[in-house]
């Protein structure tokens, strides 16, 4: 199981940099801010987990990084590529360096293409190999992602594969052009729990072997811990906390990150009727039950999003300034949090 050194050089230098990326969707009815001044970097060979609930803007961010959509404001660069200014003709070349692993391994594979065809095409298109070379290379890649024995799998079609095997194929297709960055959009959320770890481990191994960086998008902080180096927590398009994964998980500061941590099921935990609150008391109250302080009305909290903290409506620590202005990321490079009431 060795990789072709020529095509899989591990000398990768491209750094993904997002600066103040804002994405606004407008239609007649309303304006939605999907991303608000998102800034972070993914260094070569690193895995950065992007964590957030549905609607937090994770997928929009993935689409912007891969060039499917353009940001409304801000800049995205990968190495020398100015991603937010790519024309559609340049986009095809750019995708030699950025590949994507999709959430649903059932819909992201063309049911009519065999395993071999699926891997051969990016090799021919991006690396300009001829059919013979591409086939040999594809078999090598199948070995790498452990779709073995290769002669058995080569001519199978997606419906003959299991969910895990399909996702291995999707990963094989993604690493085929030897990209600098792989954007993995919830790559294991559609898979059986028992094979999730295998797939994550495979991605981690490939990262180590090829030196590519990975933007791992997930809603599950626990799986992020399994392989990521850094974590970026997104809430309603705002980065609320970011930093080294161990640091953030062991010393989570933002109430939303703490909420995510509490949501991780723990089979060894003693049975409790209710979840723990941030302050350690028995149950997490519904936001409407939080006693109103003088200047904080329910209406104010619900509508704090535009000028105040995006999390104000659900936060237990909400105070007057949360409704007045958006907090900004503060802290060290290892750990930053965006909250008026919590510091690192």
């Amino acid at each position: 199981m060795k990789l072709d050194e020529q095509t899989f050089s591990s000398h990768k230098t491209a750094m993904l940099t997002l600066k103040e990326v804002t994405k606004v969707f407008k239609n007649r009815a309303r304006t939605t801010v999907a991303l608000h001044r998102v800034t972070f970097t993914v260094a070569p060979g690193r895995i950065v987990a992007l964590v957030g609930e549905s609607g937090s803007g994770k997928t929009t961010l993935a689409r912007i990084v891969t060039g499917i959509e353009k940001p409304t404001e801000g800049s995205v660069t990968l190495g020398e590529w100015q991603v937010d200014r790519l024309r559609s003709s340049q986009l095809r070349v750019y995708r030699r360096y950025v590949q994507m692993v999709f959430q649903d391994p059932f819909s992201s594979l063309n049911p009519h293409n065999t395993v071999l065809q699926t891997i051969v095409r990016p090799l021919m298109n991006h690396l300009h190999l001829n059919v013979k070379q591409a086939r040999l290379q594809a078999l090598e890649i199948m070995n790498t992602v452990r779709l073995t024995p290769t002669d058995q799998f080569a001519h199978k079609k997606p419906h003959q594969l299991s969910g895990g095997q399909r996702q291995r194929l999707v990963i094989a297709r993604a690493i085929a052009p030897n990209p600098e960055l792989i954007v993995a959009d919830e790559p294991v959320s559609m898979l059986d729990v028992s094979i999730r770890a295998d797939i994550l481990e495979l991605i981690d191994q490939l990262r180590k072997r090829t030196g590519m960086s990975v933007l791992y998008i997930t809603h599950d902080l626990y799986s992020a811990r399994a392989m990521a180096d850094e974590v970026v927590v997104l809430y309603k398009g705002h980065v609320v906390e970011r930093g080294n994964i161990e640091e953030v998980i062991s010393h989570a500061q933002h109430p939303y990150t703490q909420l995510l941590l509490q949501a991780i099921p723990n089979p060894w935990k003693k049975r409790q009727p209710t979840a723990h609150r941030v302050d350690g008391s028995e149950s997490a109250p519904h936001f409407a039950e939080i006693p109103a302080k003088d200047e904080i009305t329910l209406y104010g909290r619900l509508h704090a999003g535009d000028k105040g903290c995006p999390f104000a409506a659900r936060c237990e620590l909400v105070s007057g300034e949360c409704l007045q202005a958006k907090p900004s990321l503060k802290g060290t490079e290892v750990h930053q949090v965006s909250c008026w009431n919590r510091q690192v």
Partner: peptide, 14 residues
């Protein structure tokens, strides 16, 4: 809008 069509674009297809 299907994923496999987006995937084909990523594979560099015209």
């Amino acid at each position: 809008q299907q994923d496999y069509v987006i995937a084909a674009k990523f594979a560099g297809e015209k």
